[in-house]
């Protein structure tokens, strides 16, 4: 039996194909403006990587903000529940998850493998990957390098403003004052961590804590968050896939709840294609 989870995030699309024993394949690709047309392509990649024909997949769950655009999914589950399941499978002792995505950040509480509380910021770029992207651009450093660079700082500069636009101005101001880039970056990471921490604190941060999402790939941010939290945090080996992994795990559970005939019926109807409820021409990104 095979089951799949697709996590269509604002920035990156992730697919996990699993069987009862192990992860068979994972795919991580940029989402892009055309994701409504491309979810099935990413799925195809994952299937060929796993060597599994589409017809053999028994249950598919879509998650992430693009979850409604996966016509071949059997069910949609929010990324909050999916991250929780994925992390719980990897680290059963984790009680608090901090997910730092491209356009939002979330705090998720787990108790005995169940989602008990969550909080999210999706109205403001502060505390999200987007914020780091913008700052990296301003400072002329590659996004994947800002974390490491910030760790070299000996005197993190003060960044007081957490509005992305104004923080950008502050970073420019520090540059013009001759502050080393690593110090500005350390300050930015501290400020970002502090913003995320104060949001997640509202649902009580209890050990163990895991960090997931693209933000978890930034060592500088993880270190700044760890300092705020006050104890070590865990980061999954591939922090981007916990949502898709959780979706695949839930898909596995769903199969047990459905009888064989209905499962076959579903499989027959399933088509690996793009969503059709959009007018293809007028909704195409230009």
């Amino acid at each position: 039996m095979f089951f799949a989870g697709l996590d269509i995030g604002s920035t990156i699309t992730k697919v996990v194909i699993k069987n009862e024993k192990k992860i068979c394949a994972t795919v991580i690709k940029p989402t892009g403006a055309e994701h409504r047309r491309l979810a099935h392509k990413v799925m195809e990649d994952a299937l060929s990587k796993a060597g599994v024909p589409f017809e053999d997949v028994d249950y598919i769950i879509a998650t992430g903000y693009g979850r409604i655009n996966v016509p071949f999914a059997d069910r949609q589950v929010t990324e909050i529940t999916c991250h929780m399941r994925g992390v719980n499978w990897l680290f059963p002792a984790v009680k608090t998850i901090i997910d730092i995505g491209g356009q939002d950040s979330k705090g998720i509480k787990v108790e005995n493998g169940k989602l008990v509380n969550f909080i999210m910021n999706d109205k403001c770029a502060a505390g999200t990957g987007r914020f780091l992207e913008i700052i990296a651009g301003v400072l002329g450093v590659k996004l994947e390098e800002i974390g490491e660079l910030s760790l070299k700082s000996t005197r993190p500069s003060d960044i007081s403003n957490m509005c992305t636009v104004f923080a950008e101005q502050e970073a420019l101001l520090r540059l013009s004052e001759g502050t080393p880039v690593e110090d500005i970056l350390a300050g930015i990471h501290k400020a970002n961590a502090s913003r995320i921490h104060s949001m997640v604190k509202k649902i009580k941060i209890e050990p163990e804590v895991a960090i997931t999402g693209g933000g978890a790939k930034n060592r500088g941010l993880c270190k700044a968050l760890e300092e705020k939290v006050g104890f070590p945090v865990v980061v999954p080996p591939e922090p981007l896939i916990t949502g898709a992994l959780g979706a695949a795990l839930i898909a596995g559970e769903q199969i047990a709840k459905i009888d064989k005939e209905e499962l076959q019926e579903r499989q027959k109807k399933r088509r690996l294609e793009a969503v059709t409820f959009f007018d293809d021409e007028s909704t195409k990104a230009r």
Binding site: I80, T81, L115, V116, F118, M120, K123
Partner: peptide, 13 residues
């Protein structure tokens, strides 16, 4: 629409 994830996640909770 941006609130949908919160309501769905709450329903899942």
């Amino acid at each position: 629409e941006t609130l949908r994830t919160r309501f769905q996640a709450f329903a899942e909770t």
